[in-house]
Design a protein around this nucleic acid. Sequence first.
DNA 1: ATAGAGCAGTCTCTAAATGAGACCAATCAT
DNA 2: ATGATTGGTCTCATTTAGAGACTGCTCTAT
Lengths: 135, 135
Amino acid sequence: MSAEEILSKRLAAWSAMGFDAERCPVRNVLDRIGDKWPTLILIVLAAGPKRFSALGRAVPDISKRMLTQTLRDLERDGLLTRKVFPTKPPSVEYSLTALGRSALEPMAALVEWAERRHPEIEAARARFDRDAEAA
Amino acid sequence: MSAEEILSKRLAAWSAMGFDAERCPVRNVLDRIGDKWPTLILIVLAAGPKRFSALGRAVPDISKRMLTQTLRDLERDGLLTRKVFPTKPPSVEYSLTALGRSALEPMAALVEWAERRHPEIEAARARFDRDAEAA
DNA sequence: ATAGAGCAGTCTCTAAATGAGACCAATCAT
DNA sequence: ATGATTGGTCTCATTTAGAGACTGCTCTAT
């Protein structure tokens, strides 16, 4: 099945369910993993488990607030686990679950696409901006 | 190369460039196509060209404001083209470019993942919420 | 002829999400 | 004693998204 067919089929299916965002996997699931921070966190954890502040260092421009929230969301979705070690001060380790690891494959495909097409997209943007300025 | 390797490699590369969001393809490109509305618009256009209000009807809960903005962004990125026909009232047709169509494949992979894993994710959420309530 | 609807948007106002950064208690190194 | 690190929470300001009125033009139905 071609990509067009798959996507059009999905669209039809969820049009049939009245576009209920609660029940539609695309909105429900991709809203989360398509997002900026969740994506980055999953990529960082692809290399192995990391602790809270190590994640913060690995993604320097995320705020602690967003880091906490993103980790909670991903934990709730079962994509990663949170293990607290009763050291002092406590250390908390985050690691991908099997489900989380299974997300890496489609994500890698998307990242590769982004890399490969980045120059074209940059060129398109430059063209668009130049044309807009000319008008 | 495994998904882990690909992603870790990308992470390292862009860590080396100081996490500059401007130059990093992942942030730069995926911020757009990973997002909710752009994804949905591209999926709708996968079936063929559509006009502005047809797109609005196909994605009923997008506001005109967001629809306009999303279409402009995608046009700027070279993923779709906007053709104005000088009818009265003017009709405007949006269609995917080759670049836009090339995005469908990785997107379809992600959508298929989302569909396949949706039940697991739902179950994980239910478990998480139950445990949180118990505590 | 005239009211209503559709076209492709723009504009404004409000509501929600995000980011920046102070603060917490405990512990270790200097 | 000072400062740093641990994993967060909390508040406040900024940014972003959403709801919906409004535009000018045309076609249709009454």
